[in-house]
Simulated assay, not measured.
Amino acid sequence: MTTLEQILPFLLTAVLLTATPGPDNLMVLGVGASKGRRLGMAFGLGCATGCLSHTVLAALGVSAVLAASPIAFTALRVVGGAYLIWLGIGALRSRGGVGVPARASGEAADPADTATRQFLKGTMANAINPKVVLFFLSFLPQFVVPANGAVPLQMATLGVVFTVQAAMLFGALGWFAGGIGQWLQRRPRAGLWLDRVAGVVFVGLGLRMALSR
């Protein structure tokens, strides 16, 4: 079983790693700033929830199979990169976001851009990221104590702890970035360009993932 002596150092390390600037942080910042607090937090919570899929895979040993198979890993990398590029293209084609009311922007709001949709986008973006697969495969076992037994259960527990702290940090990041979005509500033109910046970030991350070796 997982002990407190395992969880505390794991939690500290997880918080430090999650707070370190990386692709997930950039995506949450981009969505929060361009779409507002509610959608930014939803996307951040989705990214954190995606960690659960990696936890399950690592606990079942599937991640090890993916890591050992160049073909499977390459396929996952290309699919993950293509998905991020698709998200980026959507942002680039946007007519401006930040939840700007139609009367302020002169355009109808996009009714399909909901918190649920952003949550699912964040979950998918994280769940199909092959680098996160490798991260969980290499990170979780370092805090597992075989002598305590039930190794899959230990990894599952640590994965849930990681997900909870990531949800809190990404949610706070989405809230902070959303403050910028609220400012942009009064400046639709600036919101339009921020959507463009967010799109470039997503496309760049997607290309990096798809083309990396």
Rank of each mutant, 00 (worst) to 15 (best):
H54D: 01
V65I: 11
F162P: 06
F119S: 08
R189F: 11
T49C: 10
W175I: 03
Y83K: 05
T116Q: 07
R189Y: 05
Q182C: 09
V200T: 08
S34N: 12
W175H: 14
L205E: 06
W86P: 08
D24V: 06
A150G: 12
M41P: 02
A177V: 04
I89V: 15
V160T: 01
Q142K: 11
I128M: 01
A67W: 09
A104W: 12
K121W: 02
F136W: 10
V65R: 12
G178V: 04
V62L: 12
G191H: 11
A190E: 10
L153D: 10
Q154T: 00
V151A: 11
K35V: 02
F143W: 13
V31M: 11
Q182I: 09
M124V: 14
D195H: 14
Q165W: 07
M155W: 05
V98T: 12
A166H: 02
K131W: 05
G159F: 00
G96Q: 07
V132G: 07
V100R: 14
F43N: 04
M27V: 08
L120I: 13
A210C: 03
F119H: 11
Y83M: 01
Q165V: 14
M209D: 05
Q118L: 11
G122N: 09
A167M: 05
Q165F: 06
G90C: 10
V145L: 14
S53C: 07
G40L: 04
P111W: 06
S94V: 00
F73D: 02
V145M: 12
G181N: 00
A102C: 02
A72Q: 02
M41F: 04
L205H: 00
T13A: 15
R186K: 11
G46M: 07
A64T: 12
A166G: 04
V98F: 09
A64W: 10
S53M: 12
V160S: 06
R213P: 14
V145R: 15
V15L: 15
D113N: 13
G80E: 00
M168Y: 03
L158C: 09
D113E: 15
G22Q: 03
L4G: 06
T163C: 15
T3H: 01
S138Y: 07
A125G: 04
R93G: 08
P111I: 00
V132L: 14
R186G: 13
A109D: 12
V164Q: 08
V160F: 12
T114S: 14
T49N: 00
P130E: 02
S53G: 09
Q154H: 03
K35G: 15
M168F: 14
P130T: 08
G204C: 04
A167D: 04
L29G: 15
A166T: 12
L52S: 07
A72N: 09
R95P: 04
L153M: 13
V200W: 11
A75G: 06
V100N: 10
L4Y: 03
F73L: 06
P101H: 10
F170R: 09
M41Y: 03
G32I: 10
A166I: 05
A48I: 01
P21T: 05
T157C: 04
A109S: 14
L12D: 00
L76A: 09
L29T: 14
